[in-house]
Deep mutational scan, measured.
Amino acid sequence: MTYRVRIENADGEVVTIEISADELREKGLTLEELLPPNARIVEVEEVEP
């Protein structure tokens, strides 16, 4: 499974990243732990691999 994640950074700019569930598991991280300081998740969407 892959996630498309929209993130708002500290400057108010919204960027989109895609990350797979396998990648998260391998790194032992959650989506929140990948965020840079002062950023927030705006939207998470599951996409087909």
Rank of each mutant, 00 (worst) to 15 (best):
E32R: 09
D22S: 13
E43N: 11
E46G: 06
E48G: 14
R25E: 08
I17D: 00
V5Y: 05
E23W: 15
A10W: 11
R4M: 05
E26D: 11
L35G: 01
L34S: 06
V47W: 11
T30M: 06
E45P: 01
E18K: 05
V42S: 02
L34C: 07
P37F: 10
A10C: 11
E32W: 13
T30K: 10
G12S: 03
A21V: 09
R4Q: 03
I41Q: 01
T2N: 11
P49F: 14
A10Y: 10
I7E: 00
R4S: 02
Y3F: 12
P49C: 12
E48A: 14
M1G: 06
A39M: 09
V5I: 12
P36F: 04
L24W: 04
E46H: 09
V44Q: 02
Y3L: 11
D11T: 09
I7M: 08
E45C: 12
M1P: 08
E8D: 02
T30L: 05
N9K: 15
G28S: 05
A39D: 02
P49Y: 14
E48P: 14
M1C: 11
V47P: 03
E18Y: 15
P37S: 08
E46C: 12
E13Q: 13
R6V: 13
E8I: 15
E8G: 02
E18R: 06
L31F: 07
L35K: 02
A10Q: 11
V5E: 00
E43A: 13
I41F: 05
E33K: 07
R25F: 10
Y3M: 06
L29I: 12
L35Y: 03
M1W: 13
K27V: 04
I19N: 00
V44I: 14
R25C: 08
R4G: 00
L29D: 02
A21C: 06
R40H: 09
I7Q: 00
S20Q: 07
L24I: 07
E45S: 09
L34H: 04
T2G: 07
V42Q: 05
V44T: 03
E13K: 11
V47N: 04
R40N: 07
E26S: 13
G28P: 02
P36V: 03
K27I: 05
E48T: 14
E26K: 11
V15T: 11
K27Q: 07
I7N: 00
T30A: 07
G28E: 04
S20M: 07
P49D: 12
V42I: 15
T30D: 04
V15W: 15
E43M: 12
N38F: 13
V5L: 07
